[in-house]
Design a protein around this nucleic acid. Sequence first.
DNA 1: TTGATGTGGGAAAGCGCATTCCCGCTGCAA
DNA 2: TTGCAGCGGGAATGCGCTTTCCCACATCAA
Lengths: 345, 345
Amino acid sequence: MAASTLSEVARLAGVSLATASRVLNGSSRKPAEDIAERVREAADKLGYVPNAQAQALAKSSSGLIGLIVHDIADPYFSAIARGVQEAARQQNRMVLLASTSGAAQDEKEAVAAFAARRADSIVIAGSRSVRAEDKQGNIELAAELDRYCRNGGHVGVVGHPVVGASTTEGYHVVEVPNEELAADLAAELAATHDGEFLIVAGPEGLYTSDDRVRGFQRGLADAGSPPAEIIRTGFNRAGGYDAGPALAKRIKASKERLCIFAVNDVMAIGVTAALRPEGVWIPRDATIAGFDDIETLRDFRPALSTVHLPLEDIGRLAAGDPDTPPVSGAVKLRRSTETPVETQV
Amino acid sequence: MAASTLSEVARLAGVSLATASRVLNGSSRKPAEDIAERVREAADKLGYVPNAQAQALAKSSSGLIGLIVHDIADPYFSAIARGVQEAARQQNRMVLLASTSGAAQDEKEAVAAFAARRADSIVIAGSRSVRAEDKQGNIELAAELDRYCRNGGHVGVVGHPVVGASTTEGYHVVEVPNEELAADLAAELAATHDGEFLIVAGPEGLYTSDDRVRGFQRGLADAGSPPAEIIRTGFNRAGGYDAGPALAKRIKASKERLCIFAVNDVMAIGVTAALRPEGVWIPRDATIAGFDDIETLRDFRPALSTVHLPLEDIGRLAAGDPDTPPVSGAVKLRRSTETPVETQV
DNA sequence: TTGATGTGGGAAAGCGCATTCCCGCTGCAA
DNA sequence: TTGCAGCGGGAATGCGCTTTCCCACATCAA
């Protein structure tokens, strides 16, 4: 990657390095127009591309924003990534991507790498967890982030504060009202459904999952319904799928129609897919709702009841966009939780 | 972003800058263990994080790989992005992201930005086009890329060479056998379907779309079927949706069952969604096939017939991973093109 | 004409690091 | 003991750029 340098341009234009810099890379001092023109011509002829690394070094600001997700191919994260990307574009920055599969250890490394690149800010999406096996990783991650913040970095966290972060300096948490929204969902569902409820949740200790479970139970309680049974599985499509057989058995054994709340959309889809071969139809034999309102999944049939989350906005907010409205979700009841007309069998 | 520097570490450890550098940032010369230990301690105490920008400047290699996509939230691109990300991880690099909505002008700017950051390589995903309105943009993009390559950069292009690129030096095209696979799909469909075929394509001039159309028509011809009528619309879900009403009219007017080939999965989903309110059921009233085999869409019902593309591998290949097998797709016939049993009405 | 005040270009000092070159030291053969 | 290689650490240079400081010159009021 050897390209022509500023001093080559300066020499060709017959001016000093300083002048060339002033002309080409926006300075407060504007050299005379004829000189500027000469410099621009020279730059053009040489195909000069400024070295952002050197610029960053000289002005100590990189124009980079680091994004940490579990999996960029997961539609939840890619929607957030789009928001971050847009915010970055507006701020004239570039986004550096890191996928970590959610491992705290990997996240720590990603933060270190971003810090090494002197990213102006870091966005961490993806659920925090307090599980025992993540304990050590979380501590190290928090330490790394604290250090990054102490050195003047900004970090935007989606959903929940990083476990064990000791400073608040530099941290910016985009609160997602998971609990409230889950309660709303439960309330709306309880209004029309009078059978049992069941929750398909992620592993215990995962904040996002736990919040949604808690909120849902609270909503149920407020509506006078008994608490829902909880099945724990993976926090992704595969987790939902795996829970399918047990659910099918449960549904077939029960006299009433069961209403399932999967703590996110992809899990709900996984559950639905696993239920189908068992002969369990949604919403005929059971109803189901998810959470997130993933765009790619909207054409699904039966249309999935869910809670809409402005994921793109969340990404923008985490990336520090000031013009983005605060996070506000909304319950979306669709076909998957409709009580079917009796005549339909 | 001021952090402690190598010279601070060196001073604290009581060694020279050179020694500290050798200890901390992998050099071929290994200082004595006791000294090394002292340096590491000092680094640890200061919370030293090497400045990758400065390192890049000094060694002139950034460890960055630039990725250009139309839209990171589109599952097609996010799957490729995952592959690129994985390859980058293996190569110990980081990926820089740019979304461009497919505008050649934006892509050009993204390339310039990557070049400025001295990215070691650039991956361009997303269909190239020869449309007239993109002409100027394409020329500039090609020029920018050529310059990048001349300066020693590597570029990996998914699908088709960049229009108008004058060098081959540094370019690396990941060929996607769109045409062959589309022909295969047509052949397999023609084997069981004897009604008419219809293609929902993207705008004319979009390579990927054009290739798939051409291949499909060829497959039809080889199977002895008449060429399919072509409807042009947007190359995304919205495009498919928009084509819905016209298709519905077409289907209702026709005596035979129509087989629709949408040139990608999301378009097929869009079509299906638009058809539903019109009372047209898949596969009862018409059949449909897509292309790409998007993972998030696999749970869709009726299951979408499509052509599987190893998108993640494609991303890996474009990012220059040597261990990734060459691209090979496969036709996946599923429910959406099954001839329904007559008794099902 | 003279001194004060700008104005605009250039020299040079870093930014944080890798790396080359140099030098003092030790170990060994002669 | 002398000479030479080999080893390990340090000084210094440069990567490409920004920015401060300086200086030459022009302008204008007195």
